[in-house]
Amino acid sequence: MSANSRLTIASHALAWIGLYQRQGHEVATSEQIASSANTNPVVIRRLLGDLRRAGLVESRRGVGAGWSLARELGSMTLLDVYEAVEPGPLFAMHRTAPDQECVVGHGIQPVMQRVYDGVEQTLRKELARVTLEDVLQDVLATPR
């Protein structure tokens, strides 16, 4: 099982767009963002589509096409980004119901759901306290 990088790449894209706009550019292309993230522009476009639906970015078509922030980085939290790109719960139950006649099979899902609910609540609390402005400032302060 591999780790999911959607939150990281989406946060990268938002911080990059924010910095790019501060440098005087109106819009950024998915190709430019993809180059910074070292990924395919299609991956970036899909994530930016999710971020657009969440009201975090805007897109422009035609001449001067590209992406821009819909809000200031300081008003976006990592929770906003997480909710935009990570639909559904963090952890899932079995794909098929376990054997209800088995003592473990009968009790495992309620026990694990309580644990997962606590983890999800803690995750959301931590993500809500960090803005994308915090992320960008920490990135800029990181020595090369």
Rank of each mutant, 00 (worst) to 15 (best):
R95M: 08
Q109M: 12
A65H: 09
L136H: 00
M76N: 01
A13H: 03
N38K: 02
G107S: 14
M76S: 02
K125G: 11
D99H: 11
Y20A: 12
R144S: 08
A54F: 06
T142F: 06
L79G: 03
T96E: 11
V139Q: 04
S2F: 05
Y82M: 00
G55E: 06
F91V: 07
E26H: 09
Y116M: 14
A84G: 12
E83R: 01
S30R: 01
D99L: 14
Y20N: 11
S36E: 13
Q137E: 13
C102Q: 13
A13K: 04
Q109G: 11
P89N: 10
V63N: 13
R22Q: 10
Q32K: 09
R129E: 07
P143A: 05
M1K: 05
P87C: 05
Y116L: 10
Q113W: 11
P110Y: 15
L78Y: 00
E83D: 09
I17M: 15
V119R: 09
S30F: 03
V104Y: 15
G118Y: 10
A15L: 03
V111N: 13
L79N: 00
R144E: 08
Q113G: 07
I44D: 01
S36H: 11
S5F: 00
A28R: 02
N38W: 00
V115K: 15
W67R: 07
L47T: 05
I33W: 01
T131P: 06
M112V: 14
R45G: 04
G24C: 14
L127I: 05
H94E: 10
S35G: 15
A34G: 04
Q109K: 14
A92S: 12
L136C: 00
D138M: 01
T122E: 15
D138R: 08
D117I: 09
V27Y: 09
M1T: 06
Y82C: 00
A84S: 08
W67N: 06
L19C: 14
H12F: 09
P41I: 08
I44A: 03
Q121S: 14
W67C: 07
T29S: 15
N38D: 06
R61Q: 08
N4K: 03
Q137G: 00
G66N: 07
A3Y: 11
V27E: 06
L19N: 14
A28E: 02
G24V: 10
V81D: 04
R95P: 03
G49N: 05
M112W: 10
L79V: 02
V81G: 01
A28C: 15
R52I: 02
I9T: 10
V111Q: 15
V43N: 03
R6F: 08
Q23V: 06
H12M: 11
R61W: 02
T96C: 06
Q21A: 14
A65K: 10
S75N: 09
R129K: 08
L127R: 03
T77E: 07
T8K: 00
G55N: 08
P98Y: 03
R6N: 13
Q32V: 04
S30L: 02
S5T: 02
R60Q: 09
A65L: 08
S75I: 11
V104N: 14
L123G: 12
L79W: 01
E120T: 13
V115R: 15
D80L: 01
E26R: 14
L73H: 04
H25F: 10
E58V: 06
E26Q: 12
H12L: 12
A54Q: 05
Y116Q: 11
Q23H: 09
D50C: 01
V63D: 13
Q100F: 12
A97G: 08
Q109V: 14
A141Y: 03
